[in-house]
Structure formats: C-alpha cells, structure tokens
Amino acid sequence: MRIEILEQEIKQLPYGAMLKGEVRVVDEQFGRFACANGWARHLPADGETLVPTGTRGSQDYHDPVVWKEGDAAQKPLVQPADIQLSH
C-alpha cells in the first residue's frame, strides 16, 4: 500500500523535520496522520516505526519514522453474517 500526502505541515525540530497532514491511501481509504518524512509503507499502529518507501518532490525520505498519533490507523469494519439454524 502507498500513502499520498494531500496536505502537510512541516515543523523543523533540532532532530529533523516533523510532518503532519492528511493522507490518502491508494486504495481509496482515507485517514489523518502525523509523522516525519512523508511516504510510509502503511497507516501505522500506535508507536510503530514506519519505513518510508519512496520520495516526494526533491526531498529524500530515507529514515524510518515513528507514528505520533495512533488513532488514524486503517481499521476497516468486517461485519460477519449472522447464522440461523433450524431443525
């Protein structure tokens, strides 16, 4: 899965840039996240280390980054069908 960043806010910190923004997953699922360095392999779980998979514009994103706000991870609902047995 690939994440596209639709809008972003970059904050320069002593240890590097922090990025916050809205993302779009290629398969049309949406979510908000905040992480450093752009491209991520997937929407992350809380505290998970992300591994960038590409570059955006002229910026290089090579460093693994840590997910900061864990509530936007992709959580599609699977609704099992009820079963009715008769005899």
Binding site: D27, R41, Q74, K75, L77, V78, L85, S86
Partner: peptide, 16 residues
Amino acid sequence: TSGNTANIGSWKFEIA
C-alpha cells in the same frame, strides 16, 4: 493490508 488493523463487528448464530 498487512500491518494495519481491522475491526470485526459483533455477530451471532441462533439455533431455533
């Protein structure tokens, strides 16, 4: 997708 999570809704089965 591997690495993501899913929510599984409540369901039931009934023996009439």
